[in-house]
Design a protein around this nucleic acid. Structure first.
Lengths: 193, 193
DNA sequence: CGCGACGTTGATTTGCCTCAACGATTGTGG
DNA sequence: CCACAATCGTTGAGGCAAATCAACGTCGCG
């Protein structure tokens, strides 16, 4: 698939896009190759871009006071990722974003996003839907964290994100679930009733 | 303050609204008085409306398999609340919304919201910002839940939401934090170093 | 080949829960 | 307006889920 076509498909799932608008969108995106372990956004710096993942796997994580990494999200193909707090407010990022596998992303700067909003008002709708879906996803994760033990959260994770489970190490999954790799290992060997 | 003026102020923090648009917005809102303990949305039914809280205190909560209530959010004046999953998708709500104190809300149905998006494209921007802020808020809560022990989460809660702490019982706060009231009580008596 | 990260196992510890009991508030029907 | 019931916040004893720490074989990578 043409790389730009992949993003346009993603956008056209929610709004319709004219030929001239397609050219506009393409002109505002910057392709970036990201090697495994390469950092796209470093905590403390400002998130100036939002990234669409075309290939590979990215993650965002928060480093706490003890120096432990807490994974906030994974992103594979067709996902958008940034530190939304920093991107929204211009404050320093709390999250680091790096690649778990070699990746290709298309980056859209905040300025170019605002330009899109101006020149193409329907893009505001697309982005509204993107944010609304992200809100639903995060709220659903909060509900799960509050109401389920780790074993059940792990089962739900496998069910909801099978595309992640294959490509991501146990250690990363444990961090996403908020448990230690040792404990995840003990869950995995239990009979999966 | 004129009740409708309160919502318009809230909206005008993010977009500008003409006189005719103000009338349109007012015409699509329905005022509702909600008595303490009255249920605005019941889990299992579809969330047809999003509610703007003018006075009083609402909460949304999830009832898990053991029958325990897990509080997802509180809403006081100038907050918007719904089951965003149900409102977005039309699926049955996972959350129940009720009043912790007598409240006055302005309800906007999904149909009327779509009408607003059509007749007033800048409202899409307002709602995008609302969803984006909600996303930031939920993600920040996930980070806290992953990276901090209960005692620290309680401190941060008091700091971030002093307007809640005064009006909400310890039991409700404990449920929001994901701990038992007994354990919260034991945290509170510790020297707040 | 050799090194470092990974996944696992087991022993021990701990943060938080469960259950039970109590006085203090709050709510409510008569 | 009172009396009673219900809920709240708290305390303490005991228990469990999950963390910590240490050790070890395996694997991917330089």
């Amino acid at each position: 698939m043409q790389p730009a076509a992949q993003i346009l498909d993603n956008i056209q799932k929610h709004i319709s896009v004219s030929a001239s608008e397609k050219k506009l969108i393409e002109s505002l995106l910057v392709q970036q190759k990201v090697a495994k372990k390469e950092v796209l956004l470093e905590a403390g710096k400002v998130a100036t871009d939002i990234h669409f993942v075309s290939q590979g796997v990215l993650r965002s994580y928060f480093t706490d006071l003890e120096g432990d990494q807490n994974i906030v999200m994974f992103a594979v193909n067709d996902w958008w990722i940034t530190d939304i707090f920093s991107f929204s407010t211009g404050n320093p990022a709390q999250l680091t974003i790096d690649a778990l596998e070699d990746a290709v992303v298309y980056s859209l700067s905040k300025e170019n996003l605002e330009l899109l909003f101006l020149k193409m008002p329907t893009f505001e709708r697309f982005f509204r839907i993107l944010m609304q879906n992200a809100y639903v996803r995060e709220q659903s994760r909060i509900i799960q964290n509050l109401s389920m033990p780790a074993e059940e959260r792990y089962r739900q994770f496998l069910k909801k994100y099978p595309q992640f489970a294959e490509r991501i190490t146990q250690k990363q999954i444990a961090s996403y679930l908020g448990i230690t790799p040792e404990f995840l290992s003990s869950l995995r060997k239990k009979p999966n009733s």
